Computed example of a mutant assay.
Amino acid sequence: MWQRDSMLLQLPHFTKDLAKKCQENPGKSIETLFDLMEMEDDERGELLQTSDFHLMAQFCNRFPNIDLTCDVVDGGNVRAGKDVSL
């Protein structure tokens, strides 16, 4: 995937057309897997209208949600092109 591609393309059987449809969803743009997971089942089913919905639901339920924070050690000495320790 490219950075410009929709995050939703990580879902099995998701197409660019389906990702665009989600982004243009009336009421709330669906741009991430988490947006999709927060939807009610009937709303999600109506939006996606696909027979592969169960595969997508299984994937969403197993998708890891990881938060990562880091700090720059000795942040006063950061220079372009030099190594930085986190």
Rank of each mutant, 00 (worst) to 15 (best):
M1F: 10
M1W: 15
W2S: 12
W2I: 12
W2R: 15
Q3R: 11
D5H: 12
D5G: 03
D5M: 15
S6Q: 01
L9I: 10
L9E: 04
L11E: 01
L11V: 03
L11Y: 09
P12R: 09
H13N: 04
H13T: 04
H13W: 08
F14D: 00
T15I: 08
T15Y: 10
T15M: 04
K16C: 06
D17E: 13
D17I: 15
D17S: 15
D17W: 03
D17F: 07
L18R: 02
L18I: 13
L18K: 06
A19F: 02
A19P: 02
A19L: 11
A19D: 06
K20F: 11
K20E: 12
K20I: 06
K20M: 09
K20G: 03
K21R: 14
C22A: 06
C22M: 06
C22T: 00
Q23N: 15
E24K: 13
N25T: 09
N25D: 05
P26I: 10
G27S: 05
K28F: 07
K28W: 08
S29R: 11
S29N: 10
I30R: 00
I30S: 01
I30H: 00
I30N: 00
E31W: 02
E31H: 05
E31F: 04
T32H: 04
L33Y: 01
L33W: 00
D35E: 12
D35M: 08
D35Y: 05
L36E: 00
M37W: 15
E38A: 12
M39N: 13
M39C: 07
E40A: 12
D41K: 09
E43G: 01
E43Q: 15
E43C: 08
R44G: 10
R44C: 13
G45S: 14
G45K: 13
L48I: 06
L48D: 00
Q49S: 08
Q49Y: 03
S51I: 13
S51C: 11
S51H: 13
S51T: 15
D52V: 06
D52W: 03
F53T: 06
F53G: 02
H54L: 06
L55Y: 11
L55S: 07
M56D: 01
M56P: 01
A57P: 01
A57D: 15
A57T: 15
A57G: 05
A57K: 14
F59W: 11
F59E: 08
F59S: 09
C60P: 07
R62F: 14
F63S: 12
F63L: 09
P64G: 07
N65F: 07
N65C: 05
N65E: 09
I66H: 01
I66G: 00
L68G: 00
L68N: 02
L68A: 05
L68K: 03
L68T: 06
T69R: 10
T69G: 09
D71S: 07
V72T: 14
V72R: 05
V72D: 02
D74P: 02
G75N: 07
G75D: 14
G75T: 03
G75R: 08
G76M: 03
N77Q: 15
N77F: 14
N77P: 00
N77M: 03
V78P: 04
V78D: 03
V78Q: 03
V78A: 02
R79S: 10
R79G: 04
A80M: 04
A80R: 10
A80T: 10
A80V: 13
K82P: 01
K82E: 12
K82M: 09
V84W: 06
V84G: 01
S85N: 13
S85D: 14
L86D: 03
